[in-house]
Design a protein around this nucleic acid. Structure first.
Lengths: 149, 149
DNA sequence: GGTGGTCATCAACTAAAGTTGATGACGAGA
DNA sequence: TCTCGTCATCAACTTTAGTTGATGACCACC
C-alpha cells in the first residue's frame, strides 16, 4: 500500500481514489482487482444501481471525473465508505473538526432522537441547550463533591 | 421550515435536504432565505464554482435530483457540511450529528465547554439533557408553527 | 386601473455523464 | 503461424444535468 489515499491523501485525483478503492478495498474476501466488466457487474448487483463497465473505465482512467450522485452512492455503498471520501482535500481538512466533534458526541452518548432534535433546532435553541448542560454538569459535580466530603 | 427536517428523516428527499440547508444553514450572518438568483450568486462567488439560479431551483423543487460531484462539492463547501450529508439516510444521519456537533462547538468556547461537560456527565444526567433537548425542540417547533399561522 | 420591478417557472439549448456495440491488441493453446 | 477468447479502448448514441433567455404571475407604488 505505497500510496494511501485513505489516510493522508492530499492532491489525489478522483481516478486515483477510485483505483485505490478497487485495488485495496474490494469486498468479497478482499479479492484483488478485477476486470472492468466484472467490477461493474459486481457493483450493479450489490447496490442495485446499474453501472456499465465503460463508466468504471472512464472513472479509473480519468476520462470523466465528475460523476453523478447516484454513481457516487453506488460506489460508496459497494466499497463501504462514506461519500465524503470523494470530496475535496480542502473539505477533508474542514471536516476534521466535525469528525472530532462527532466522536465527542458519540462518547457523550446522546441518543439518536436527541441528536436529531438538536439538528433541527435554531442556534438560539442550541445555546439554551448548551447553558442547560453546563449548569446540569455543575450541579452534578457539586453534588458529587459534597458526597465525597 | 415548512419541511420537517427531523421527523421523516428516513425518506428525506434531496430537495428537502437542500431546502433545509438554505433555510437553516445560510452563512453570512445566518441570514434568512434568499431568492434563487441571490443564492446562486453567493454560492458561485464563495466557492468559485458557477451555479445558475435555475440549477438551484431545480434542486430545491426536485426537478433534478442527481447532481454532479462538482455541484455537490460547491454546495457542501458553501454550507460548511461534509458531502456525506447528501448521501443515503444512514450516512446523512451520521453526518447530521456531525453538523449538530459542529454547531454546538462552533461559535463560543462556551459551547465547547458544554460538550466537555456532557462527556463528564453521568448517564442519568445525559438522559436528562436528552429529554431537555427533545422538549425544547418540540416547543420550538410549536412556536414556529404558531408564528406562521 | 396603470406602470414598473422582481422573481419563480419554463422551454430550448449545450455539455457531458453514462450506455451500447464494435474493434483491435494481446496472450494462450494447437 | 493460425485461431480463439478475453478485455481495454473507443466512437456513436441516449439521457439528463446545467445554462440561457423569455414569460407571466405577483406586488408594490402612484
Amino acid at each position: 500500500m505505497a500510496d494511501d489515499p485513505g489516510t493522508a491523501n492530499s492532491t489525489r485525483s478522483l481516478a486515483a481514489k477510485i483505483e485505490w478503492l478497487i485495488q485495496n478495498r474490494w469486498p468479497a474476501g478482499s479479492r484483488p482487482p478485477k476486470n472492468n466488466v466484472e467490477a461493474a457487474a459486481a457493483i450493479s448487483e450489490a447496490t442495485g444501481e446499474e453501472l456499465s463497465s465503460t463508466t468504471i473505465w472512464k472513472l479509473r482512467t480519468g476520462r470523466s471525473d465528475n460523476p453523478q450522485l447516484k454513481t457516487l452512492k453506488a460506489l460508496a455503498s459497494f466499497f463501504g465508505i462514506p461519500i465524503g471520501y470523494f470530496g475535496d482535500d480542502d473539505e477533508a481538512e474542514a471536516t476534521a473538526a466535525q469528525v472530532a466533534a462527532s466522536s465527542l458526541v458519540g462518547e457523550a452518548g446522546l441518543n439518536r432522537e436527541a441528536l436529531r432534535a438538536l439538528v433541527e433546532m435554531s442556534d438560539g435553541g442550541r445555546q439554551l441547550v448548551a447553558d442547560f448542560i453546563i449548569s446540569a454538569a455543575r450541579l452534578e459535580r457539586g453534588r458529587d463533591q459534597a458526597e465525597e466530603a
